[in-house]
Design a protein around this nucleic acid. Structure first.
Lengths: 183, 183
DNA sequence: CGCACCATGTAATGCGTTACATGATTTT
DNA sequence: AAAATCATGTAACGCATTACATGGTGCG
């Protein structure tokens, strides 16, 4: 899938691997991520498939950059993938739930500490989604008026992140209280 | 991590690979899953590490089964893992959000169809979590009174699944309306 | 008669993470 | 002086998915 993430961003404009990583971190990070090393590998694969082309851009006082550009064939591949229906639900892997599931014999205070750390982390992410990410999207929409439709959808993905974090925080409070009472 | 899922279940009682797959499907499926083939591979690895032992149980009129039993060393590994704090948030991969993010140029009706299929799928999962899974947990708690504490935590993991699906369904309705209006 | 269930495994492939390797510039 | 940012890659390792392989029993 990383292929399509990269094609998606390159469809807006030409970018380097490094910039693609930044684009991901600013926008899709809460539902799709990738390591830089994997991005470079995948870009090379996309080039072999003819979905992108690359040119070295020499820079003074900075390392040279390899700028990737989407091809017609790359746009076609992206469009084809977008139109393809998803027929199954995605499978999640939630480490916290896994540990919690088997934690009945674990020391109660260790478990509570675990849950409180998670509460902090999720609170932080919640604020990030509500503030930094929301303004980021608004700014893009104002800066590039041709992307209003895109911005509507970006906002929708942000909104699910917000709702999920709200649910998660609510659940953590519920669960901390539950563990205190019943364990 | 699959190692610990298997150890977690084997800590309750000895099981075969096939039964472990069933246990996962009945309980942790919405936050952790695994293919049978991977379970068999991982069980073999656990045996090499001394975390489990296995015995062939011959069966008449059924294929022989290999029953796995957790060792003292396996219990220790499990306990050690459970006590270990999680310091980072898990990273999700949500295919639907990824497609949605890049779908501004996609045909509106194709996108709406995509979202409606998802609504059906999530509705189904929501009911599964609320009904089958809830009763499954209650039954286990009644059947094995020594597992009341465990059942409290199982129920907690189920509850997050429920809350997440509620949020997801809410969001899908929101988003379908949004796409109809603004795209 | 065909499908689902019981039951276990191997092999190939793909994808992702972590570590390694390099090195200048800018910010704190 | 140290840390972060810019910038690109290779290599090893681990884990997961998919396909392949086998074969009996029970049910509709």
């Amino acid at each position: 899938m990383l292929k399509y993430v990269l094609l998606g961003f390159l469809n807006y404009r030409s970018l380097t691997g490094y910039e693609l990583k930044q684009a991901i971190n600013r926008s899709t990070i809460h539902f799709w991520h990738a390591e830089l090393s994997q991005i470079y590998v995948t870009l090379k694969a996309l080039e072999n498939e003819g979905c992108v082309t690359s040119k070295i851009q020499p820079q003074a006082e900075r390392p040279d950059r390899r700028v990737y550009t989407i091809t017609r064939s790359g746009r076609a591949a992206l469009a084809q993938w977008l139109a393809q229906p998803i027929t199954e639900l995605g499978t999640k892997k939630e480490l916290l739930l896994l540990k919690l599931f088997f934690s009945a014999q674990l020391d109660k205070d260790v478990l509570l500490a675990q849950l409180r750390v998670q509460r902090d982390l999720h609170q932080q992410r919640y604020h990030l989604i509500q503030n930094e990410m929301a303004t980021e999207i608004q700014q893009s929409a104002e800066e590039y008026p041709q992307l209003v439709k895109d911005a509507v959808l970006w906002e929708a993905t942000r909104r699910l992140g917000e709702l999920h974090e709200e649910a998660y925080l609510h659940w953590l409070d519920e669960t901390i209280a539950l563990v205190q009472k019943k364990l």
